[in-house]
């Protein structure tokens, strides 16, 4: 359950960036191979956000499909698992997407 710690990081980073304003919405980008369960983040978000600048904020999680470029033949291919081989048979690849774990944007209440 590292998702609890990660959700705390979401709240801490967004609160700091908000500089005292209320956060209405947080948008995360989470790669499908990031090793983090988005359901677990959703599960603890409201509780972790309670009493902070994110209390009651909407949580949007954009899941990013994984892609890799084969180092043998150069093909860019979809990577549903961490060890999906290229159609050419090679497993030597450069991962292009799918490991994201970040706050993309936050939406703040308008400054008074």
């Amino acid at each position: 359950m590292h998702e609890l710690g990660i959700t705390r990081n979401v709240v801490a980073i967004a609160s700091e960036a908000a500089q005292g304003r209320r956060v209405l919405k947080v948008t995360l980008e989470v790669g499908r191979l990031s090793g983090v369960m988005t359901e677990a983040i959703r599960f603890c978000f409201d509780t972790v956000a309670e009493g902070t600048a994110l209390d009651g904020a909407e949580l949007e999680i954009r899941e990013i499909d994984a892609q890799a470029r084969c180092l043998a033949c150069g093909t860019v291919y979809a990577m549903p698992t961490l060890f999906t081989a290229c159609a050419c048979g090679s497993r030597e690849c450069e991962r292009l997407a799918g490991e994201e774990l970040k706050i993309k944007t936050i939406e703040l209440e308008e400054a008074a």
């Binding site: 706050i103 944007t105 939406e107 703040l108 308008e110």
Partner: peptide, 9 residues
């Protein structure tokens, strides 16, 4: 109101 953070968790 929308702030781009691109902050790694």
């Amino acid at each position: 109101t929308i702030v781009t953070l691109e902050a790694r968790l």
